[in-house]
Amino acid sequence: MLSKYDEKIGNIREKISALLREITAADELALEAFKLSDAQMFKEVQKSLEKIGFKGDEIDNEIIKTFALFGPEAKELRFLVAYLKMTNEIVRTGEGVKKYARRMSEHTTNECNIEPFKPSIILLHKSSVNALKYILECFDKKEECNYEDNYRKVLVEESMNDDLFAVLEKEILNRIIDEKELSIDYVKILGSLRKLERSCDRSVNIANLMMYAEQGGEIKLFK
């Protein structure tokens, strides 16, 4: 029979997993919306993430109550600290996906021609989705997860994401030189794509926190 503390931790894990699942599904939907230039699908992404901050606060409150009621030991305390930090990274990832969906919906209807960049943007987006999927899979299969291996896989996606963003940034800046009258629009597109780049950074942070919770050591997060 599980102790009250273990029940609480299990409940927190389930809520974090559900939050991750919602964000991953929304991120995949945003990718499809971009592929199809579908404004309605972009709106669905935004609607699905409307209460993401509230859900994050709910998890944080559960963690704080567990702190207060059960006076956890060192290992238990490590899990709670990691989960508290994870919630922040997860919510910020979800907020980034929501903003990306809103902005990309606008970008696909303005005068900028983003069609030449579409294959690279899709690959950039896929890497951010893949990183989230690795984390979600590890959360859902806790007993089977190799946390170090999971961290390395997320790092590979983040590295690929960085390289793709650097290529896109160069291509878009070159387009600004050729189409100065649309420079502000192209800069906004770059800002939107950075949401995907930051999503991968946050996934690395979450994977690191998962490893820290299980193994201890040091917390090393992207700023």
Rank of each mutant, 00 (worst) to 15 (best):
N208M: 05
L182K: 15
E181Y: 13
R202V: 08
S199R: 02
E179H: 13
S203V: 10
K180P: 02
I184D: 09
R198P: 08
V204R: 10
L182W: 02
S183K: 06
C200H: 11
V204C: 15
R202G: 11
V204P: 04
S183A: 15
S183Q: 05
K195Y: 06
G191F: 01
N208Y: 05
K195D: 05
C200T: 15
I189D: 11
L182N: 03
G191M: 03
D201H: 14
K195G: 00
G191A: 03
L190H: 05
K195S: 03
E179R: 11
L193Y: 04
I206S: 07
I189W: 04
I189S: 06
D185F: 13
V204G: 05
E197P: 05
D185L: 07
L190T: 07
Y186F: 15
S203L: 01
E181G: 03
S183N: 00
S203A: 15
R202W: 07
R198N: 05
S192Y: 00
E197I: 07
L182V: 02
S183F: 01
I206A: 11
L193W: 03
N208K: 12
R202M: 08
K180C: 03
S203M: 15
K188F: 03
R194H: 04
I189M: 10
L190S: 02
E197V: 05
L196C: 06
C200R: 04
E179Y: 11
N205W: 09
I184G: 00
R198D: 04
N205S: 12
N205Q: 08
C200Q: 09
D185M: 02
L193E: 04
V187W: 01
A207Q: 03
A207K: 02
L190R: 06
E181I: 05
L190A: 14
G191V: 10
D201W: 11
R194M: 14
L190W: 06
R194D: 09
C200E: 02
I184E: 12
I189Q: 08
N205H: 09
S192E: 06
S183V: 07
K188N: 14
L196Q: 07
N205F: 10
R194K: 14
L193M: 03
V204D: 05
R198A: 06
L196M: 13
L182D: 01
A207I: 12
D185P: 00
E197F: 03
V187Q: 09
E179F: 08
I184W: 14
L196E: 08
N208H: 12
R194L: 07
K195A: 00
K195W: 04
S199M: 14
A207N: 07
K188V: 00
E179I: 01
I189Y: 02
E179V: 12
D201M: 06
R198K: 14
D185T: 06
D201F: 15
D201G: 13
K195Q: 12
S199D: 03
I184Q: 07
G191W: 02
S203I: 09
E197C: 11
S192T: 13
N208I: 02
I206K: 14
S183R: 09
K180I: 09
S183W: 04
I189L: 15
V187P: 01
I206M: 13
K180G: 12
A207G: 08
S199I: 08
N208V: 04
R194Q: 01
S183G: 07
D201C: 04
K180E: 12
